[in-house]
Amino acid sequence: MTENSERRVISVIVVNEASVLSRITDLFSGRGYNITSLTVAPIPDSKYSRLTIATSGSVRVIEQITKQLHKLIPVLRVYEHADLVEKEMAMVKFPITENLSDINTLCEAYNGKIVNVGENVIIAMVADEPKRVENFLKVIKRYNPKEIVRSGAVALER
């Protein structure tokens, strides 16, 4: 009975109201499920928001999560994505003394660029699939990043 635990992405459309986010995260924490990443933003011209949740679990666990999410009163729809386009953004702060052209070239390879230049630091951003973003973050380690921030994934069904 070993069921494979795989990474899954679930999108949830919810009424944009107070406490709705905690209803959803409570559902995960109360059952001991972990949320890998979470993004929330209002859907334009509607009273709804879209959450994109990256999590992991067996087919049965994910099916339960989906059903339990759907049971929450303010949840309109739940998508468990199979075939999806997924993007994530990361911003990284480098000392200005690092090799800027190398950094710039790397960023471009990951759909990014240098977005801010200050007296002591530069800020670069990339936007790509979560796996590639991870790769990027590995590669740039040698340029002594001072701070890294990731956005969490957003996804759309193909």
Binding site: A18, S19, S22, D26, G30, I73
Partner: peptide, 16 residues
């Protein structure tokens, strides 16, 4: 109160 009752009610409201 709504924080506590969230996991043991079908739904809850804080009326503002």
């Amino acid at each position: 109160a709504v924080g506590i009752s969230r996991s043991c009610t079908k739904h809850n409201y804080l009326v503002t």
